[in-house]
């Protein structure tokens, strides 16, 4: 029979092993993607248009589209997600109605993105008649991201101890005043971290966009200031192929001779941007936390 001490040692070993496997896979994955793609990343790759038939195309528009879609999505997601999270954390009573609403959010959060994409196509592209467009894509990604944002906001608020709520209430603050002036500032580091991390998820999403934002991008002119011109980068009604959709597209339907290199380069850029999101979420969160604690 094993002694408790040995079991303890065994379990510790297994846990360390699991953590190592995870870290190992990540390092291996990042290593491969960056090693294969890095050689293809150059200034001209980042700043030139993609090509349809010939080799040597870049990813300028795709990169722009990804960021623009992300910004629009976050503009829709953050207010709804924040308000929803505040409702669940601070206002919702513990009853059947609340648990029904909470199940809805959880279910929505667990829907496969391709299903959300199909729904977006039906509603925004077809019923509303917006076609394949940035707006359709951004709203679809909002559906995809909003439940996560609600959950992140709720968790961030719930992490604040109750004595803060009581302290504020005892000073004659209403519930909303407490939320606005005590809880949200205190939860800000966690909220921001959650926001940036979910931004990474949105930035890398492809399945939900294939049927909503499309596989093509008009020839954009970055000096075109007329918002609804077809070649305006800001036009929300134009089609927009994002970076991750581009990776999928060149690999499956693309006919360019250097598809493999383009995909590798684009993947490396995508991974780097998401890595940057994650790192900045940690660093900014920690910086604000330190600012609050005043040390």
């Amino acid at each position: 029979m094993l002694k408790a001490k040995h079991v303890d040692r065994l379990m510790t070993g297994l846990m360390i092993g699991s953590a190592m496997i995870m870290a190992g896979i990540l390092i291996f994955l990042l290593g491969i993607i960056l090693l294969r793609g890095a050689s293809h990343i150059s200034l001209s790759f980042l700043t030139s248009n993609s090509s349809s038939f010939q080799a040597g195309g870049g990813i300028k528009n795709q990169l722009w589209n990804s960021f623009y879609l992300l910004v629009l999505t976050m503009v829709f997601t953050v207010p709804i997600g924040l308000l929803g999270g505040i409702y669940f954390a601070e206002y919702a009573k513990d009853n059947k109605w609340t648990s029904f609403l909470r199940s809805c959010v959880e279910l929505l959060a667990s829907l496969p993105s391709i299903i959300v994409g199909m729904f977006g196509m039906l509603l925004f592209v077809n019923v509303f008649g917006w076609g394949f467009s940035i707006l359709s894509g951004a709203l679809t990604l909002t559906i995809f991201n909003m439940p996560v944002m609600i959950q992140v906001s709720e968790a961030a608020l719930r992490a604040i101890p109750n004595h803060q709520r009581h302290g504020s209430a005892a000073l004659g603050a209403t519930r909303w005043q407490t939320v606005k002036t005590v809880l949200l500032p205190a939860a800000f580091p966690a909220l921001l971290t959650g926001m940036i991390l979910s931004a990474g998820r949105v930035f890398g999403e492809s399945a939900a966009l294939i049927f909503t934002a499309g596989l093509t991008t008009p020839n954009l002119h970055f000096r075109q200031w007329h918002l609804f011109a077809m070649d305006s980068p800001f036009n929300p009604m134009r089609t927009a192929e994002t970076l991750s959709v581009h990776i999928w597209a060149v690999n499956t339907v693309g006919i360019i001779p250097d598809a493999a290199q383009v995909a590798a380069g684009a993947s490396a850029v995508l991974v780097l941007v998401i890595l940057l999101f994650n790192l900045s979420a940690r660093i900014i969160g920690r910086m604000i936390e330190r600012g609050i604690k005043g040390n």
């Binding site: 101890p161 803060q164 504020s168 209403t174 005590v182 609050i292």
Partner: peptide, 24 residues
């Protein structure tokens, strides 16, 4: 007014803590 068992200042400046009730 009320004072609690555990000191519970808000994670804000000293000034903001004192004026919280007044601002509300």
């Amino acid at each position: 007014g009320m004072l609690f068992q555990k000191p519970n200042p808000f994670p804000k400046s000293i000034y903001e803590n004192v004026v919280h009730g007044l601002k509300c």
